[in-house]
Simulated scan of single mutants.
Amino acid sequence: MRWVAIFTDGPEMLAVRREREPAHLAYLQQHHERIRIGGGLREQPGGPFVGGLWVIDADTRDQAVALIENDPYYVPACRSYRLLVWGKALPGDVIL
């Protein structure tokens, strides 16, 4: 099952990003078979990050939540998320 996590960052998240970026990127790499696509969101090119988005393959909502909440970037005081089930329109892998 595919899930989409949409993250919203508070202003304090910038310091978390600076401090934990290497651990976060290692976490994404370690879980690349489940976190299929991930990246930061900005309101404009070159602007500050305001959140992020992941496409997750997980059998259950609990598995997707565990992936999110074990990420070094997940600090509830600085970052919230919305988790939605996603159905892809066309079959096959996505190539970006």
Score class of each variant (00 low, 15 high):
27 Y>W: 12
28 L>V: 11
28 L>Y: 06
29 Q>G: 15
29 Q>E: 15
31 H>G: 05
31 H>R: 08
32 H>Q: 15
32 H>N: 11
32 H>L: 10
33 E>Y: 08
33 E>K: 12
33 E>P: 00
33 E>M: 09
35 I>S: 00
36 R>V: 13
37 I>C: 10
39 G>H: 07
39 G>E: 06
39 G>M: 08
40 G>Q: 05
40 G>C: 06
40 G>I: 06
40 G>P: 13
41 L>K: 03
42 R>Y: 03
43 E>I: 10
45 P>S: 09
48 P>A: 11
49 F>N: 08
49 F>P: 02
49 F>S: 04
50 V>A: 00
51 G>V: 04
53 L>W: 00
54 W>S: 01
55 V>S: 03
55 V>M: 10
56 I>P: 00
56 I>G: 02
57 D>Y: 09
59 D>Y: 13
60 T>W: 11
60 T>S: 15
60 T>R: 14
61 R>C: 07
61 R>Y: 10
63 Q>M: 13
64 A>R: 05
65 V>H: 07
65 V>S: 04
67 L>W: 03
67 L>G: 02
67 L>S: 01
67 L>M: 06
67 L>T: 04
67 L>N: 00
70 N>D: 14
71 D>P: 00
71 D>N: 04
72 P>H: 08
72 P>Y: 08
72 P>F: 09
73 Y>E: 03
74 Y>T: 04
74 Y>I: 04
75 V>T: 12
77 A>M: 13
78 C>Y: 02
78 C>F: 04
78 C>L: 01
78 C>Q: 06
79 R>A: 04
80 S>P: 02
81 Y>T: 01
81 Y>A: 01
83 L>C: 04
83 L>H: 01
83 L>K: 01
84 L>H: 12
85 V>H: 13
85 V>Y: 07
86 W>Q: 02
86 W>E: 02
86 W>H: 11
86 W>D: 05
87 G>S: 14
87 G>Y: 13
88 K>G: 11
89 A>C: 10
89 A>G: 12
90 L>N: 15
92 G>E: 06
92 G>Y: 11
93 D>P: 09
93 D>W: 11
